[in-house]
Design a protein around this nucleic acid. Structure first.
Lengths: 256, 256
DNA sequence: ATAATAGTGTCTTTTAGACAGTATATT
DNA sequence: AATATACTGTCTAAAAGACACTATTAT
């Protein structure tokens, strides 16, 4: 302990926490080709990565990946490390969103848990799925994890909170891009948004995004080396314009 | 410790945190009547409440109010309790916004700090100002606290983060109401918003809020018992319509 | 009359929103 | 020819935005 000082500080006489873990809610969107007559958009589903616990408490139950923080690292670093160690995922979008500290939430003692969510493109999880024992690490549809699965600790609550947070951010930040390739069509974008926020309905989505001064600069059309619009027909007969996020963010407001 | 179990759990062999405090960034907006010829809107300024530390470390320096969490309470309860104990403030808007856990941030050891912000109407701080010793608890303009004051720990960073968060929320949630009476004029509302977000400029603010279907239901006009529009001339010769927040929140979106 | 805030009139441009229709290329 | 996605035409209504103008009333 760093106690080499001349004061009468006596924190040690108080009860201190038994641990401060980071838990990570890892979301991905899986996409499955549809068995249709011609090219079509894939079926997409929001999934969460869970780990089967191997030790007490809640042994054998599904839980969020995570682990205890060390004195030499920040909580964010803990989360990054655990993400890498437990799932092999690295360098993805990750945000801290809440602390879980209710008394009695962990039978091991006074454990204050710090919850992150990560948004991972399915391609980063492909390698992992092959390597890991599927019985110990698995993806579940979020709706199923919330309703049909009994999760360890208060992880159901954490997952539920994370989902709310991601839904919110989905419409207000460009995080949809985390589930998309660098270049995507507006049809794909719309589909990804709807996968996370099902009640987002915009009849004229494509038209609106194309007008409104390129939607205030959030997106931009991709052009090839000759300055010609770059298009893709991966999901459709008629080729669709490709877009990318610019990084620009208009300030949304209740008042403007 | 809650260790009455039959497992070989051995958290105690690992280093555990030396404390998990909650720190609270308490914002208020002061208003001072202007010495003008006729009635006018007051001068408003965003302020933060700080406490002068009486013990090591950082003895004598200004710091955010806060204190250590106990095993029997959640972090949120800790924050509420400290808010009440240290400043006498209760029942105000308070939100958790981040954790500060960088190694070495506290000379007392491994201290993981949980930061909240509170938004307090100045009327709640009036009583306190009289009771407390001004040398130990004081309000500072936020800009001054960030530039001219040297704060204890990493509290400058925490304050800075809190300010960013409140600026964001100001335009996207109805928290402006926390700094206003229940019934307010659009002039007051505009002034409060600008006090927190100086670069929010809306030439036609009042007009816009009155049109656009009552701004999507965020605000509503106040009517008196006879159904007549209720007005106030507290800040102007010509009486202005009074409004209140409805609690309705339109969903903002980059895409709609 | 002046000051300080609270509005309104008027006009142009942009956006929203609905809905039918056309475009493209694979099967 | 049917299919699945990607658009475009056309219209109407609503909102944004600029800016000059009027309204109110304590001093």
């Amino acid at each position: 302990m760093t106690m080499e000082n001349g004061s009468n500080y006596t924190a040690s006489k108080y009860r201190t926490p038994d641990g401060a873990p980071a838990d990570i809610v890892i979301f991905t969107i899986t996409s499955e080709p549809q068995p249709t007559a011609t090219k079509s958009l894939p079926k997409r589903e929001l999934q969460v990565l869970l780990i089967k616990r191997k030790v007490w408490p809640y042994e054998g139950m599904w839980a969020l990946p995570g682990g205890f923080s060390r004195e030499t690292e920040s909580m964010y670093e803990t989360a990054r490390r655990e993400l890498q160690e437990e799932t092999g995922v690295d360098g993805v979008h990750m945000e801290y969103f809440n602390v879980y500290s209710g008394p009695g939430r962990d039978p091991r003692g006074w454990i204050i848990s710090h919850a992150f969510f990560a948004l991972v493109h399915e391609k980063y999880l492909a390698a992992r799925a092959a390597a890991d024992d599927a019985a110990e690490v698995a993806l579940f549809p979020v709706s199923e994890a919330l309703t049909r699965l009994e999760l360890a600790f208060d992880h159901r609550r954490i997952l539920s909170d994370a989902l709310e947070r991601v839904k919110q951010s989905m419409l207000v930040t460009p995080i949809a891009g985390e589930f998309l390739p660098d270049e995507f069509t507006l049809g794909e974008l719309y589909q990804v948004i709807r996968t996370v926020v099902p009640d987002f309905e915009e009849a004229n989505f494509i038209r609106k995004m194309k007008s409104t001064q390129s939607r205030s600069g959030v997106l931009e059309e991709i052009r090839d080396v000759n300055g010609e619009p770059k298009k893709s027909n991966r999901y459709s007969q008629r080729a669709a314009q490709l877009y990318r996020f610019t990084g620009n963010l208009p300030k949304l407001s209740l008042y403007s």
